[in-house]
């Protein structure tokens, strides 16, 4: 189980969580950020620092936000496991619920 960034991040993208992540596994899209589930080590550092409470453990995502779990996974369909956000930088697309890859 890992953590998931849900809808409250959209168009806020505060990015405080990026500074906290010890493995640099939080990736920036154009409208929100995404946690790479294979790189996340479940430490939980990101969750309490999010100013809009957008981050949840995958097992505790509120029902209305569940679509973001799948959308987060989809964000990494092509990126795979880049090994750290620092290595690839911000991406110019997003994966949001009810929306195809928005390039």
């Amino acid at each position: 189980m890992t953590f998931v960034v849900a809808g409250a991040c959209v168009d806020v993208k505060d990015r405080t969580c990026l500074d906290q992540c010890p493995v640099d596994c939080i990736y920036e899209g154009s409208r929100k950020v995404y946690i790479q589930p294979e790189e996340c080590i479940d430490c939980g550092a990101c969750e309490p620092v999010c100013p809009v409470n957008a981050i949840f453990p995958a097992s505790d995502v509120p029902d209305v936000e569940l679509a973001h779990v799948e959308a987060n996974l989809r964000f990494f369909d092509e990126l795979g496991s880049p090994g750290g956000f620092e290595l690839i930088g911000p991406q110019d697309f997003d994966c949001l619920p009810d929306q195809r890859l928005d390039r």
């Binding site: 500074d19 906290q20 992540c21 010890p22 430490c43 550092a45 990101c46």
Partner: peptide, 12 residues
Amino acid sequence: SGVIGTNKADAQ
């Protein structure tokens, strides 16, 4: 206080 990742921002 905090978890391991908390130290990253602290150190920065």
